[in-house]
Design a protein around this nucleic acid. Sequence first.
DNA 1: AATACCGGCGAGT
DNA 2: TCATACTCGCCGGTATT
Length: 388
Amino acid sequence: MSNSTSSRETNDERRTILAVDFDYFYAQLEQLRKAEIKAKPIVVCVYSGRTKDSGAVSTANYIARSLGVRSGMPIALAKKILQKNSDAQFIPMDREYYDSESERLMQALRSHSSRFEQVSVDEAYLDISGQTGGDFSLAKEIAIQIKDEILQGERLTCSVGIGPNKLLAKMAVDSSKPDGLTVITPERAPEFLYPLPVGKLFGVGPKTEKKLREEGVQTIGDLANTDESVLSERFGKHLGPSLRDAARGIDHESVKERASEQLSRIITLKRDAESFDFAGELEPLVKDISSRLAAMNLLCGSVSIIAITSQLKVRNRTRTLETPTNSEERIVKVTSELFVAFFEQKRQNEDVEEEKKFGLRRVGIRVSNLKEMKQILSNNSTLTEYLS
DNA sequence: AATACCGGCGAGT
DNA sequence: TCATACTCGCCGGTATT
């Protein structure tokens, strides 16, 4: 959590923030473009290509969810759950389509506030303080208007949460889906938050929840009243106190469009790899990343490889470049070197450690440390050095 | 002591 | 049982200055 003044609002306690979340987004888009499946269970799947049904569920409509299907679940399990529902639709994810639809929808939302922040393909924050003057019932009217516009204009439902900051807006929107509209005023924040189990707090996942429960923290209210020193010790001197702030509904983060700071692509290999024999699989990933960098007028200062082992452990190796690049050839070269070094290192560790012998199940690349090309060029005399 | 980088982990969509 | 593809952020350790 940043302490810089630029991340604070001037009138911090009088803000009105909307969190907008398109309901079961991918599945809703699928049922929109194929009207006859609307009343059926829909499961949007990421097929990994290993075996017929290997892969995971990305999202499902509420009919499928009511039968027990969940995001992240193996496709095979979802099929088992729905085996008696012969009308169930298992649809492969079509990211390009969802992205292009998202772009249009976000444009529509953007027109409601210049203070806009897209946080994912289907979620955004709007700071509408200027239009409400702190009046939450007016904010609710605006939210109704936005929901109606999306429904009439795009035939999509969304949920909206309203609060005095992003955190409470997010907690609000998560509390009533789909097609929800929830307001958390500053006065009502404690009564809203405190009874909830601590795992419901945004940012508290399974691991953090377990650690908190070990400290006797069951509810968000418990967390709000937990000694700061206890939290600092258990979660670090920044994360600890910020957890307690969150439990108290305190959040100073401003609604601000942020440039993306990294790009990554990852794939599942057909078979676990014991050596660097998958350069060919990486090629299209690098091509894609490199062309996206160019399209965004960006160069990357760091290149990483991502490896997920057969035990599903994540491993990374990063190289910071002397000169930033968006060149496909350079990224390929660095990627190869990192993978070769990785396998060499792993081979050496095998006898010593309990790294044992594992293969790599999934591999990918990431570029980070992104820089505007214009800036680089204006600060430097030569073009070729950076475009090589 | 401050800063940068690295690799692991956690959380969320 | 099987277990995607992304993005972002923090932590502790280590290296650099």
